[in-house]
Design a protein around this nucleic acid. Sequence first.
DNA 1: ATGTTGTATCGACGGACATCAATGCAACCC
DNA 2: GGGTTGCATTGATGTCCGTCGATACAACAT
Lengths: 134, 134
Amino acid sequence: MSNQELVVLGRNDETDACCPGLLTAPLDEDQAVELAKVFKALGDPVRLRLLSMIASRAGGEVCVCDLTPAFDLSQPTISHHLKLLRQAGLIDCERRGTWVYYWLLPEMTDRLASILTRPAAEPLPDRAATATAS
Amino acid sequence: MSNQELVVLGRNDETDACCPGLLTAPLDEDQAVELAKVFKALGDPVRLRLLSMIASRAGGEVCVCDLTPAFDLSQPTISHHLKLLRQAGLIDCERRGTWVYYWLLPEMTDRLASILTRPAAEPLPDRAATATAS
DNA sequence: ATGTTGTATCGACGGACATCAATGCAACCC
DNA sequence: GGGTTGCATTGATGTCCGTCGATACAACAT
């Protein structure tokens, strides 16, 4: 059911370490290709809402039967979007009896957040702070 | 030069406040549409590398003439990608004499990072305690 | 076994997107 | 002025992607 997910998650603590992240050093092409796949998965309103519904669920899991009726889209379309989110490593799922449940993989969102976070204590001598007097 | 950028940046501290963010409450459709535009802009390896090169630049600015030769792509293509990043509110630019300089708008990346950050100290009673269904 | 319900996959179609060559425009230099 | 360089825009083209109906598959009910 799931065998070709992206390998952008931790594990390879050598190629990109844990937190150099996009804003501090020029991304090499391989890293850019992998990262772009994840961001592309987030680049659709339906998938963003799906992810949000899954992530904000109290129990941590959502049944597909609760997701599908929230959209004006066909059931195959929702299934397609869930598949893309899963291939991006953002969620995972499990069949339990008749129903299939999805949950968030917080490792990926954590990784994206840290990638987008600039180093806190940068000297930052440039233009941005030129007008502040206090 | 720049007049139709997205309005996802702060400013409207009422519609979505400052930090509810994607993982805690179901995104409504309008928010999802706006957010998806930004993530879509990040969903391309070339644009990710461009953004990374711009953001990690010491002086805070990069001349287009330094960006274009770093890719095996035509000059119009690079210009096109820079335009998309700018329309997403991730960067801005200014012409200075013969050359055009681009710089990062950290408000947007900061916003994305906070949106992807889950609340640190959530009680997280999760699945074990929710067995009282019917 | 047969039927029913929940979910995934397939094939097709229309629109969106990445890319290019050609061209336009702005700023410099002679 | 005319020529040159840096960058943006235009128009065209091939590919990708979101969507659907039809269908297949899995689990349960009878």
